[in-house]
Design a protein around this nucleic acid. Structure first.
Lengths: 364, 364
DNA sequence: TAAATTCTGAGGTACGCACCTCAAATGCGA
DNA sequence: TCGCATTTGAGGTGCGTACCTCAGAATTTA
């Protein structure tokens, strides 16, 4: 039997150097079987949760796993599966620039992941028809797909479809927006309340002692994200900066005309506007409209998500900071979580926390 | 022969949904051999760069690779290697809190990587004895180690040791600090000039219209990192904020006593200090000293690297922002780069760029 | 106690590639 | 054209696991 911890010291002659060593041999299922006093077949049954093993035997095997420090070799396991992992990202059909970035990262990941037998896919859901979306999700079978990251509104239909998918053995994880943490505390994305707080703090710090009011502009206040960001934003401003006033949230509904209208109105109604907060994921429209109205000039402006629009505006000094979440990290984290679920492994929470990044022109 | 692109459509009945499909079969070395009209042995020779193949044959195989879109199955390749990947991080013996964080992440990675047949190791180098360090590195053989990430001063000895390691077939990558980009443009770490600029911009923005001078404190000005950060910092301040003056860099040499001395002197010599920039990786000492001297109170202060010290100071409001690079990303990126080198693959530059993060209390 | 049921073992194949050996074919120069 | 070195082919083994079958052992039930 090969023990888990025989090591060779890489630099045995250099004792004074602190170094830990490389493991040479790791116990295999064969070692496990011998240690547990059962056959390979039984070990396989236990490891893969197949039926037909007495409780006592299961415990004997688990005991041996513990004793040997056995870890399944995922490389061999993946190869033996005869098929790679197939993950999908269910995203809304209507998208913004940030969504485009995410999709590009998924494509990149898919290309790179081939060699590791991991594939990533995008499914576009009709965001205005929860029934249809739910039907699409309900049609997926474990044959086609191992796991799915979902960005979809929290309707009862979707919720139900998710539950049924999980029952069929498809792993799920809520992704970036529009979803409760659901079915086990996993969630891929930033804490939007903290993101709002960050924006608020930064806006106030950049303003310094200047007094006045702040315009808050977003696509729609209906979304959970907007709500949370607004909460975090207001909390910081109200608690710490009484000389600043936050105006009611304005909505663009994704329409440049309307955006221009509401922004112009707000600027006319309040002659003391010193800051703007573009709260939604689609900052392109607010930025363009603000450019036309010359609204950010002399005011501090903060937007969300790095996209070509925000990047350009940041470089030109039209806006002052961008609160961001890295789409590459989002994608890779989702895949890691889904894969860990497939393999019944835990994930390192610290590694999977998506950072709320602050971008200014200098650290783009 | 199996083509690379036969697909099954996951949602064939849902045409209106945009979706790309899952690849079912990928060409194997066997397919490659058939397509190139050579044997498996020859394919193997070409793929693994073994000698004894006519140029014309090599081209035929490469041609077939191109035509089929062949990608080596890294899962199978890793399994067949009969041994996992062994990577090491050569780090200075004397460390700061940030180095501790990095080491912790290496440990985490090592634990998690076991299942993927990747091991990570730490080798501590004596930073005051380049000869000894070089000797340590020179002793490493490809049997023991596949690649190494190196944080060590750029002495001729080290440089030489690195070259010889590369000749022996050990992959290397400069890591975080003290190293030129060396041998191919890879470097794991942030752009320190940009980091300095970021710090400068942020400091100035937080200060607003306030006039005065800024104290810059670091461990030693000898290091390349300090130099670059200072350059970036000064560039931003001088170009954009003429009402601010940057004072000459003060050095702590890692000594709290000395730190307190130089800081107190500087504060006494200049009664207009409005900001502090703790430029080194070890902000603990400056923070503690500043606390004793009550130096940051009423002044804007920026430090580098998230550590228990900086995190605590940020939460307490003793400092205003931290410029950070994520140690987890550093470690994983180094491993990805080393592994890609081992497998003769390219890496996605966009994925490997380490972000210069800005942390404030709200986005910790 | 016999029969039915549940559990277990032994053995196999497969995944895609790395690495090995040895014989045969090919190309080359003289 | 021969002899030699170089190049190629055929075949093998092994990595650690998944997944399969079927016979026989152990246990439970009637």
């Amino acid at each position: 039997m090969r023990l888990p911890l025989p090591k060779i010291c890489a630099i045995i002659l250099l004792k004074p150097l602190e170094t830990w060593m490389f493991t040479t041999m790791r116990p295999t299922t064969k070692d496990l079987a011998k240690a547990a006093g059962v056959s390979l077949a039984t070990v396989d049954r236990v490891l893969n949760g197949r039926a037909g093993v007495r409780q006592k035997t299961v415990e004997a095997v688990n005991d041996a796993i513990e004793r040997l420090g056995f870890q399944r070799n995922q490389v061999a396991a993946t190869l033996a599966r005869q098929r790679g992992y197939r993950f999908a990202f269910a995203l809304p059909r209507s998208g913004d620039e940030f969504l485009d970035e995410i999709i590009e990262r998924i494509r990149e990941f898919d290309t790179a992941g081939r060699a590791e037998m991991v594939e990533a896919n995008v499914i576009r859901l009709d965001d205005h028809d929860p029934h249809k979306s739910a039907r699409v999700l309900s049609r997926l079978t474990p044959d086609e797909i191992d796991g799915i990251a979902i960005m979809a509104p929290e309707t009862p239909q979707i919720r139900d479809a998710l539950l049924r998918m999980q029952e069929r053995g498809i792993r799920t994880v809520p992704f970036v927006a529009n979803q409760h943490s659901f079915g086990g505390g996993d969630f891929v994305g930033i804490d939007n309340r903290a993101a709002g707080s960050t924006a608020g703090r930064l806006l106030a710090r950049f303003l310094g002692p200047v007094q006045g009011s702040i315009i808050v502009l977003t696509e729609t206040t209906q979304s959970r994200d907007s709500l949370e960001r607004r909460l975090g934003f207001d909390a910081v401003i109200h608690r710490n900066y009484p000389h600043l006033t936050t105006l009611p949230t304005l909505e663009t509904h994704g329409d440049p005309g309307r955006a221009q209208h509401v922004l112009r109105n707000a600027l006319q109604a309040h002659d003391d506007v010193v800051g703007l907060y573009f709260m939604g994921a689609e900052a392109r429209i607010p930025i363009e409209v603000a450019r036309v109205l010359n609204a950010t000039n002399g005011r501090v402006t903060i937007a969300h998500e790095r996209t070509p629009s925000t990047e350009h505006a940041l470089r030109k000094g039209e806006i002052d900071a961008v609160i961001h979440q890295d789409p590459g990290h989002l994608v890779r984290s989702a895949v890691r979580i889904l894969r860990a679920k497939c393999e019944n492994r835990a994930t390192l929470a610290s590694q999977e926390r998506i950072r709320t990044e602050i971008l200014i022109a200098e650290n783009l």
